[in-house]
């Protein structure tokens, strides 16, 4: 069985700043990293492949320099890495992105049956959490999101059971294969590449598929295929705070006032 891990190269958002004049991200000199959630998806794929004696293919849509992300995936042990890169893919929103990724997965599926597609729950740059479910929808497969544990896989019955991490509770759900899964960080601790694997990954081939390979209708990809667009990026204004009491001379009074205010706003309870 082939397992596909979708990974994305993202700017290190802790280092991104917004240009106050143009309201756009200042990306100059900002290093790129593998989307942290995707490292967990990759790890899940590698572990599943070990258990199921499967093969892992890592795919990534992005500019040619996104190759570094796939190289990292090779160092971690994926069997194949495919970069989906074409000017026509540029400027895509989540819909257009999922169209490209789904097309690539279909193509991979023609060569070797794909049983499971893994994605991070979201990327740290867009934070939409839409691409994983988008892929599932385009492929017409089940989607299992926010997974923090693979409970079991029944290859003969072609079913998978996972645990989803929701707010304040867990949910165990089951779905037929093939399936698209998005994972949360709690699912595992990603591995670290060994030095021999790192060195080996430098020599390995990364396939580049453009739209001549994928042959997707250009109206459904890139900027043209994107019904959403960003009109403005800005940092929200923070509401002014309020000084409570005189802590310097009357700490007990100030504390009392604070507790009352928090109680009245239902932020704490007795």
């Amino acid at each position: 069985m082939q397992i596909v891990a979708c990974i994305k190269q993202v700017p290190d958002t802790t280092q991104v700043q917004i240009d106050p004049v143009t309201n756009t991200l200042v990306r100059e000199g900002i290093p790129f990293i593998v989307n942290p959630y995707d490292t967990h998806a990759l790890e899940t794929a590698l572990r599943l492949a070990d258990d199921l004696h499967g093969r892992v293919t890592a795919i990534s849509m992005g500019p040619l320099n996104a190759e570094a992300t796939l190289r990292r995936a090779l160092a971690l042990g994926v069997d194949r890495a495919v970069l989906l890169s074409d000017r026509a893919f540029g400027g895509a929103d989540t819909l257009a992105t999922s169209n490209v990724l789904a097309a690539a997965i279909r193509r991979l599926n023609e060569e070797d049956e794909v049983g499971i597609v893994l994605c991070g729950k979201q990327t740290i740059d867009g934070d939409t959490a839409q691409v994983g479910p988008g892929i599932a929808t385009r492929l017409g497969w089940s989607q299992l999101t926010l997974v923090d544990r693979i409970v079991n896989i029944d290859l003969e019955g072609r079913r998978i059971r996972v645990r989803r991490k929701l707010e304040g509770r867990h949910e165990i759900v089951e779905a037929p294969l093939p399936v698209t899964i998005t994972v949360v960080r709690e699912i595992n601790r990603p591995r670290y590449p060994t030095v021999p694997m790192r060195l080996l990954s430098r020599e390995r081939q990364i396939e580049v598929w453009d739209n001549r390979v994928l042959k997707i209708d250009v109206r459904t990809i890139g900027l043209k295929g994107s019904p959403t667009w960003v009109s403005r990026i800005f940092s929200p204004q923070r509401d002014m705070g309020e000084l409570i009491g005189d802590g310097a001379t009357d700490p007990a009074g100030a504390a009392k006032l604070l507790v009352e205010k928090l109680l009245s706003k239902d932020l704490i309870s007795l």
Binding site: T14, Q15, P31, R189, P190, Y192, T194, V195, P196
Partner: peptide, 20 residues
């Protein structure tokens, strides 16, 4: 370097040192 075996805390450290 050969086995990638180290205490869990160090994963973040290594990534932080490498990336930032």
């Amino acid at each position: 370097e050969m086995k990638s075996e180290f205490p869990d805390e160090l994963l973040n450290l290594f990534e932080n040192m490498e990336q930032r």
